[in-house]
Write a protein that binds this DNA or RNA. Structure first.
Lengths: 218, 218
DNA sequence: TGATTTTTATACTGTTTCGCATAATATACA
DNA sequence: TGTATATTATGCGAAACAGTATAAAAATCA
């Protein structure tokens, strides 16, 4: 069988642009999605209009629809992007081999970086914000949020299990229970951050929580 | 000086209707405010329209404005009503003399009752929801929310201080730190409740947290 | 009974909202 | 060079929105 046209072997490299057919896009989807995420994090779903999103992304509305679907789909994609970003920022710390106390310190420091960033006030944790708002009435979004909670709970549990095996925790310590307390600490600093509690205070909360979860004197 | 008209001595009793002058109100302010609070707790500020509020309260829009001011003022009054209700539900337990573990159990049970109520899905903690949304951009609302956090932190701290004095806690226990962990536990169950985590799971979180904060064996 | 007062009921205004229809534009392909 | 394709740009349209103006209704007071 004769090949009419040779399809150039798709290079695995990300940088390769596959030469699309019509008028080229005036936007970069990843960047635009990041801008949409910023807006949703700042104002929430209901208070963010498509005009706001259009202005922030530099895409006009038809382009937004073409690229991401309607407002709800864009919200969901923004949330998934947030999760991917947060995971990327955390995975090295969770997967590393630091002593439990240092590891917790690093985790909470990274979390505070995420929650306190934002030019127009601290943006908090998008999972928590979404749980409080859209997750109530929207089953698909709720499922994602529950996944988010579970992912964090499990990551903390793995940390505490490992620490217990290493003799860093009391033999009576329950990794599962400690993991839920660690998540609770995440949630409380996320919420307080959103209400503009200063970083110093949040760090004090973290410090106290670590002292209870993983006391210094074995 | 001659009194033109004698003003009847205002009876102290609440039940006394002071015989108002014009057309009588067709609504009861306290009941209407409760309905507004229900709506705001369900959908949040931005997603609740004045039409919704008008339908829920049975008041038409001009009456709503006359009684409570604009939407923002109504939200603030609803939030203050929520705080008053929550305080009323908790004050006896916080002020009582139960052993610390039983006291914590009662507090969290009462909190779960508040967070899980609601016909159209669990309504969560209005302080947490408001912190996540309106508190960011509105200084007045933010102040109220910070008050709410502080009030709970202090109430927990008083509990743990008393328990320590009674020898119910380890001498090394820090009531302040434990109070913040107790608040964190409140926050995590409030958020998870909103995402429809079942009561059993939330109760398990509470149980584990109590075990860490106030261990059974002194 | 008639005037005053207070609330309710209706409807209006101007703005904002979401989603889409249509036309212009810029590229690849033949 | 002309055609097909994919995107952008403009703007329409119906609905929802917050807030208010105006008139009707229901009470007290004289």
């Amino acid at each position: 069988m004769v090949q009419k046209r040779q399809k150039p072997p798709a290079a695995k490299s990300d940088a390769v642009e596959p030469k699309r057919r019509g008028r080229p896009r005036a936007y970069q989807p990843e960047i635009a999605l990041g801008k949409a995420l910023d807006l949703f994090r700042k104002d929430g779903f209901a208070a963010t209009s498509l005009d706001d999103l259009s202005a922030a992304t530099g895409m006009n509305r038809p382009s937004l629809y073409g690229a991401f679907g309607d407002k709800r789909e864009l919200y969901i994609k923004s949330y998934q992007r947030y999760r991917a970003d947060a995971r990327a920022a955390m995975i090295d710390i969770f997967g590393g081999q630091l002593p439990i106390r240092q590891r917790l310190e690093r985790i909470y420091a990274a979390a505070l970086d995420i929650y306190l960033s934002g030019e127009a006030g601290p943006r908090g944790c998008f999972t928590v914000m979404t749980a409080a708002s859209e997750a109530v009435a929207d089953p698909d979004i709720r499922k994602l949020v529950l996944e988010g909670f579970s992912e964090l709970d499990k990551a903390f549990a793995a940390c505490f299990r490992l620490a217990k095996e290493n003799g860093e925790l009391s033999p009576s310590a329950d990794p599962q229970v400690l993991a839920l307390l660690a998540s609770a600490t995440i949630h409380t600093i996320a919420i307080r951050a959103r209400a503009q509690v200063p970083r110093k205070e949040l760090e004090a909360i973290v410090k106290g929580a670590i002292e209870v979860m993983a006391p210094a004197n074995v």
